[in-house]
Design a protein around this nucleic acid. Structure first.
Lengths: 345, 345
DNA sequence: CTCTGCCATTGTAGCGCTACAAAATCAAAA
DNA sequence: TTTTGATTTTGTAGCGCTACAATGGCAGAG
């Protein structure tokens, strides 16, 4: 910590300027507005900077300019592959416009609020959240500071901006699919958790659509985890206790569905003949497990891209064309529901 | 953007001070050194700050104090659950000491270097990396700036500090286990990728240990992805082409091993009778899939905690007791290798 | 040879905060 | 009452950078 003489204190713009024989402003311009600096000068400054290992102090720049090239993303979990494409989309879109994406994990709403606080403390250019349910305190903060914020994986009714798809619409589509392949006693597995925002729409949609088909929406079970394989067997058991004639199961994620598949294997149940199983999310496992899983494919990559594009648009001052963007979804029909009811009533 | 009058410009320490009728320094102390401020004053400041939605500008604080409460973690992927416990460990340890953890994803060494650059630009208190292979440029930067940095998931020979376990030791332990349950023609699946640091030790260790057991280490295959289910079938096919009498397979991750299990199912091969399969990482799927997977359990949570503890120790000026910490591992024997060789030679 | 206009470069001031030292306050001791 | 010492509060200066205005240099026009 005692700097010998002053040979190698922290490298600042000042020291680069001195070493390159120019003023600090020229160094600043070299990095921020290269076109303002003559080719030759620019080259020399870059060289010296690299030599010294100079990296501009973002904190100081942020303070001076009031601007930031960092976008914060709060994600609820990395426990499964669901968010991989989403984050990739954000990453790619950010990089294209010269922004940096940093992540914070928050598996409860309380942690989400803390993460938002941290990001605002960092004075990020904007941030993305998952879901539309947040603590009042967080909403308050977001409102007061006015940072650009996009809610993702949901559709409509945004705090500021939103991008995603309608879980209700996807639920209806999946019910239609199961009915179309012959299922009648369809079970529903929901998730009753803390970051439940993007799950809460599903149960009402399920109940309504089942009724519209003239079917009873009575086989519902709320799991206390959405991501674990373990939730599958538990849910199946609970629903079987309600009615052994259950012939299809709509799961909150592919992971839960995979858990159900494993359990069916243990029970010697054939899928989809005895039980059709549908997942959600189009995780990698969905297409690798046997039988392959029917699932909802949420266009996660596009969603990530869209979120960042909206943040950047707002951060650049221009109002984005649309403050709500729908990236849609697709029901991918695979073997786990194929001709499920062929031997049923 | 036109502030009407000046009623609600950005909330600064200044404005909080004015509103609370104290000096800015008192506001600063209220947040940074609460014990220096009288109970009553502190309460009032806190109240006003909350009212106004004030969040201290970390950039300004960082600049003024030269200190940061943010730690950056570069992680290679969130494609699977492998890093979940690791990140949780980091998160928990950071929170306990009042630090913030922010993540950046980097799936190539080039991206890793960019992430390091970003974090240094943010002047984080320290950072954690995964693996011990980095671009020269990154190493150079790390050296020149002297930020505290911990390499994780590896053991020994650190740039600055390291925490993890020996992949070589784990490989040897797994070979011993497979031999003990009767396997003789053991196949090895490696990973030849960009962030291969923590994989490169395994093949030599495998070859050496096999030889020590008097077995031929000739059934080796390098996959081009470590995380995908798809790598499993490919590897199995490649190795079968080399020798159909293969009776065990050591995979780089549980995901690959699960892929192998799926493929065995398609082929009608019994596991472990026809082929014993071992994974690596103790992912959730390992204990849920059928048969359950034998795997290497890497104490990821403890590793994460250790990494952050070391970063904080160094950032606080005190030299950590040990610059290399071994968090060990455990071979978890499960059904996928149980009595594998009972009917073999 | 001077003047205008244009470009590259350079001062100046200040972003919001904190370290440090100085000042104010107040209770207890002299 | 004055003094002392501890506690609480407050100026001052400056962290490293960038916006902005101002400077200098230099070509071509007058």
């Amino acid at each position: 910590m005692t700097k010998c003489g002053d040979m190698t204190g922290p490298v600042t713009m000042q020291s680069v300027a001195k070493a390159a024989g120019v003023s600090p402003m020229t160094v600043s311009n070299t990095f921020k507005y290269p076109e303002r600096v003559q080719e030759e000068t620019r080259r020399r400054v870059r060289e010296v900077a690299a030599e010294l290992g100079y990296i501009p102090n973002h904190a100081a720049g942020n303070l001076a300019s009031g601007q930031s090239r960092v976008i914060g993303a709060v994600i609820p979990s990395i426990k499964n592959s669901s968010f991989y494409k989403y984050v990739r989309g954000m990453q790619d879109a950010a990089a294209e416009d010269g922004y940096e994406l940093v992540l914070k994990l928050a598996d409860t709403k309380r942690h989400e609020t803390a993460a938002i606080r941290t990001f605002i403390g960092l004075r990020v250019a904007g941030l993305t959240l998952v879901g539309k349910e947040h603590e009042d305190q967080a909403v308050d903060l977001l409102r007061k500071t006015g940072v650009p914020v996009v809610e993702t994986w949901v559709h409509g009714d945004p705090l500021d901006m939103a991008v995603g798809y309608s879980s209700a619409a996807a639920t209806r589509a999946m019910v239609d699919h199961l009915v179309a392949v012959g299922c009648r006693r369809i079970g529903f597995v929901g998730y009753a958790g803390d970051v439940a925002g993007r799950y809460t729409e599903r149960l009402p949609a399920f109940e309504q659509r089942m009724s519209e088909h003239g079917l009873a929406p009575d086989l519902c079970h709320l799991a206390d985890e959405a991501d674990g394989f373990g939730a599958g067997p538990k849910a199946l058991e609970a629903l079987c206790r309600m009615d052994m004639s259950i012939d299809a199961l709509l799961c909150p994620t592919d992971i839960v569905a995979a858990g159900v598949l494993f359990e069916c294997g243990r029970r010697g149940w054939k899928v989809p003949e005895r039980l059709a199983v549908a997942g959600w999310g189009d995780y990698e496992i969905a297409s690798e497990i046997s039988p392959q899983l029917t699932t909802v494919q949420p266009n996660a990559y596009e969603m990530g891209r869209g979120a960042i594009e909206m943040v950047i648009a707002r951060a650049s001052g221009l109002e984005p064309e649309d403050s709500v963007r729908n990236t849609g979804f697709e029901v991918v029909a695979r073997a786990s529901t194929d001709n499920a009811g062929s031997d049923a009533a």
